[in-house]
Write a protein that binds this DNA or RNA. Structure first.
Length: 459
RNA sequence: GGCUGGUUGGCAGAGUGGUUAUGCAGCGGCCUGCAAAGCCGUGGACGGCGGUUCGAUUCCGCCAUCAGCCUCCA
């Protein structure tokens, strides 16, 4: 029985889909004006894992992850670069897909872009105005009137009174209430715009998610996810817009992943302490990043550091090493390992616990190997199968262990030759020579492992 | 100030009202020409103070402390 921690109630709840056997899930994607960083990678690895596991449970999942391709930062960056905003977003959408692909993040079923859904956005704004939940201010901008929605603050646990008292809310004289947020923003000179009843402008950030999720998943759907920083105000605003527009409950389960921190501080663009995915991929294998992310529960905060990534590397290499020489075959059914794995995952996607099960299974695989047991194939196949559910251990073990992201100047053939030379030295009992070759390779980051069949190496 | 969520062994990180997390690192052993990998064994923990309980790291309260949100942010 699947339990999900629901931010609407701040409790773990038994998951019940709206329509039996089907799950409709929407996750807020990125604003494409720069390369994705490790914080982004966490959010999308996490929800990729969620979608994979829900499908494993047999659900027919419709997973939507949008792209915000118009907003202030995009316009600003495009201006700085002296290029059309569309050119900018196209470039970074491509980069995002490349990065995500490396991290084995599967494509969502639909990946709508805000600019492709302006009509749906305008329709929703019109409905909100008609129903009295939104108004056009003197400057032409259209705002949502927070005051008209009495459930405002339900998701984030905030009270409108407290928010109003806050000193950090900008006082904008165009708004009736400082908490009101923009739905349609008038275009300034030389800014991209779309025609509307309210004038030439562009959508506010929050409305696109409401419009696109409702358009594609219906008024009421199962799961909505995103980073913890989106809980307020973004998701709060989505609820307000959608429920006021449709008169129905918007989402049943809200999920938010925790942040990635750097030196005990949130990784973010404004702090400038972010590491882009492509930079990290110069030092670590993509799967090491994925393993690092999934080693902790998705709601906890994690700290990014080389030490963490090094530990992830060691752990992942242990798992892959167990798969060496395994002849994969049928995956045994109804094993205790799978039960434990699923129990962990059913408990609010506890990947840390699930990975611990993989390590227990790994010991069993290694033990079977040491004993030359016929169980090796079955246990190894099970390990690969369970790990694959998390998007891990999909590569060939030998190739993975020989792969490297850093250039040590040695080709595989170079190494093979050295290893061969050392084999001869060993045969001649020339231990000094054998050790010298091994030391050379060790210095280059190559690890040698002798066994009865010969010598295996990895980077 | 309001609201969230944390505080577990050298590091990372799960979990539990009384019993082994798991990984990395350490120590001892097996294996090995020596190693490495692997296997076997092993030490080491639950922020502080109260309370509930036969018994609390686990439940409750208070305190301390950290991070986050309240402004764009995954």
């Amino acid at each position: 029985m699947l339990k999900i921690y629901n931010n609407l109630t701040n409790k773990k709840e038994i998951f019940i889909p709206i329509e039996p056997g089907k799950i409709r899930m929407y996750v807020c994607g990125i604003t494409v004006y720069d390369y994705c960083h490790i914080g982004h990678s966490r959010a999308y690895i996490v929800f990729d894992m969620v979608a994979r596991f829900l499908r494993h449970l047999g659900y027919d999942v419709t997973y939507i992850r949008n792209i915000t391709d118009i907003d202030d930062k995009i316009i600003q960056r495009a201006n700085e670069n002296g290029e059309d905003f569309h050119q900018l977003t196209t470039r970074f959408i491509k980069a995002m897909h490349e990065d995500f692909d490396q991290l084995n993040i599967l494509m969502p079923d639909l990946e709508p872009k805000a600019t492709d859904h302006i009509p749906a956005i305008l329709t929703m704004i019109e409905t909100l105005i008609d129903k009295g939940f939104a108004y056009q201010a003197e400057n032409g901008d259209v705002y949502f009137a927070v005051n008209e929605f009495n459930k405002y603050g339900e998701l984030s646990g905030k009270r409108v009174e407290d928010l109003r008292a806050g000193e950090r809310v900008d006082v904008d004289t165009n708004k009736r209430d400082p908490m009101d947020f923009v739905l349609w923003k008038m275009a300034k000179e030389n800014e991209p715009f779309w025609e509307s009843n309210y004038g030439k402008g562009r959508p506010g950030w929050h409305i696109e998610c409401s419009a696109m999720s409702t358009e594609m998943l219906g008024n009421h759907f199962d799961i909505h996810g995103g980073g913890q920083d989106l809980q307020f105000p973004h998701h709060e605003n989505e609820i307000a817009q959608s429920e006021c527009c449709t008169g129905e409950k918007f989402v049943n389960y809200w999920m938010h992943n925790g942040f990635v921190r750097v030196n005990e501080e949130k990784m973010s663009k404004s702090l400038g302490n972010f590491f882009t995915i492509r930079d990290v991929l110069k030092e670590y294998r993509a799967e090491e990043i994925r393993f690092f992310i999934l080693s902790s529960h998705y709601r906890s905060q994690i700290n990014y550091s080389d030490e963490q990534l090094d530990q992830a590397r060691s752990g992942l290499e242990r798992l892959y090493a167990a798969l060496l020489d395994v002849e994969f075959g049928d995956v045994p059914k109804d094993t205790e390992y799978q039960q434990r794995f699923e129990l962990a995952m059913n408990d609010d996607f506890n990947t840390a616990e699930a990975i611990a099960v993989l390590f227990d299974l790994t010991r069993d695989v290694n033990r079977a190997k040491a004993e030359n047991s016929p169980e090796v194939a079955a246990l190894g196949s099970l390990l690969k199968y369970l790990a694959n559910l998390l998007g891990l251990l999909e590569l060939n073990a030998a190739e993975f262990l020989k792969s490297s992201v850093t250039d040590d100047g040695l080709s595989n053939a170079d190494i093979d030759l050295k290893v061969e030379q050392r084999q001869q030295a060993k045969k001649d009992k020339n231990w000094a020579m054998a050790d010298q070759i091994r030391d050379e390779l060790t210095a280059a980051g190559i690890v040698l492992e002798d066994n009865v069949d010969g010598t295996r190496w990895r980077r």
